[in-house]
Design a binder for these strands. Structure first.
Length: 396
DNA sequence: ACGATGGTTGCTGGTGACTT
DNA sequence: AAGTCACCAGCAACCATCGT
């Protein structure tokens, strides 16, 4: 604007600032006024209005309010709102297709999405309703690429298996110890006397796929389906939809479905979903066409979405007991002393509260251990014994 | 200069789901 | 039964571009 219409720009900037230089938050009103005027001049110049309309859509603004804003010239109309939504879905389709052309290895994950709708007034005709939906996402692999892709899975013969293969040994063990030391170091460097240690600790614990994991992952949402994964027929419908959607995308991206048949698509879900979808595939084992037999959808894998919660649950099962309120040092003792009333041992009901509480107590205990080991009075004091040989100065 | 064409925008009446 | 709300299809208004 300052280049194309310097005169108008100066006038508007002067009005906005009272003669001072235009900067900071004063930029937005000028840009807004200009965008509204330019849109009135030609409806093709609507980037700004599209933005405000999308914000309105995102916030579920009512159509009546949107229409009033439209009359004021700050948003687009409700008709355009629907067109924008259509546009968004076709852009997502194009996004999937163009991403497919770069790497044909994708994975679909799905999970059930249950809603409980309470009516304002319960009656025989209208009762509370349970909605069972199914949500899915398409994910693109960040590590594997077609040239690294092996079509033959590596299998260890059952006769060669022995128990020791499941135990940590050699460098696995040292990797684990190394990871522990980083985690403990993060707690230690919170102490004033050891704050220098923060520079020496890595931001992330080292692992072989660090580069790939630092890349942005591409995730696209598929439409939410009105399907109940507890029913076999609905699971079959879900897989049918997957096949239809996938063959459509691969057709658009490669002109045929050969690539899809060659690589297949991994389908992931939590333990229950995985079993149900696999059962649905088995139901179609005798169907007439490969598409109906869901041959492109394999393997079905477990997504460990609940691992952290399961671990937390085990921790609370082992460490939390409501009868131990008088024993200092127990979880229940701290819960009572810190008045954490939302901690009741039911991890699923309040994951965040339980997680935060265990983390707090754990960190405090580790800190206490450090204070004892280094012979420190409190977190502010200097260590008196067991000081590492490496001194501050030599480290800098 | 004029009309045809294509694209975008907003309006209108009708419809169905839902609430009061 | 009446009202509210969102959506849909169809249409007119408008503008830019192109060919005659």
């Amino acid at each position: 604007m300052s280049e194309r219409l310097p005169f108008l720009f100066r006038i508007m900037a002067t009005i906005a600032t009272g003669g001072k230089e235009l900067q900071g938050t004063k930029m937005a009103p000028v840009a807004t006024a200009y965008a509204v005027l330019m849109n009135a001049h030609s409806d093709k110049l609507s980037a700004w209005h599209r933005m405000t309309t999308i914000v309105a859509i995102k916030g579920h603004l009512e159509d009546s309010a949107l229409t009033r804003f439209n009359r004021l010239g700050v948003t687009m109309s409700t008709t355009t709102k629907l067109r924008l939504l259509d546009e968004a879905s076709s852009i997502m389709d194009k996004g999937i297709v163009s991403r497919l052309q770069k790497s044909p290895l994708v994975k679909i994950t799905g999970d059930n999405l249950d809603m409980y709708i309470k009516t304002g007034q319960q009656s025989l005709e209208k009762s509370n309703r349970d909605l069972h939906l199914f949500a899915s996402n398409v994910l693109f692999n960040r590590i594997a690429s077609p040239d690294k892709y092996s079509l033959v899975p590596t299998r260890t013969p059952l006769t060669d298996l022995n128990a020791e293969m499941f135990l940590l040994s050699g460098n696995y063990r040292s990797t684990l110890v190394n990871s522990y030391s980083v985690i403990l170091g993060r707690i230690l460097c919170e102490l004033k006397a050891f704050s220098w240690m923060a520079n020496a600790l890595p931001d992330h614990i080292h692992h072989p796929y660090q580069h790939e994991m630092s890349l942005k992952s591409d995730i696209f949402q598929l439409p939410i389906m009105m399907k109940n994964e507890a029913k076999h027929e609905d699971c079959v419908d879900i897989l049918d939809t997957y096949e239809a959607v996938l063959s459509d995308y691969y057709h658009k991206a490669f002109g045929s479905e050969d690539v899809l048949h060659k690589f297949g698509v991994t389908v992931g879900g939590d333990q229950l979903t995985r079993v149900r979808l696999e059962e649905a595939k088995n139901l179609r084992a005798l169907a007439t066409t490969p598409n109906k037999r869901f041959e492109d959808l394999h393997p079905f894998v477990i997504e460990l979405w609940h691992t952290k919660q399961d671990f937390l649950e085990k921790c609370f099962k082992a460490l939390y007991s409501a009868s131990s309120v008088r024993q200092p040092g127990t979880l229940y003792y701290f819960k009572s002393n810190l008045q954490r009333t939302d901690i009741n041992g039911k991890v699923k009901g309040g994951f965040k509260a339980h997680h935060e509480f265990l983390y707090l107590v754990g960190t405090a205990m580790v800190t206490e251990q450090f204070l004892q080991y280094f012979g420190m009075e409190n977190v502010e004091s200097e260590p008196t014994k067991n000081m590492p040989i490496m001194k501050k100065k030599s480290f800098r």
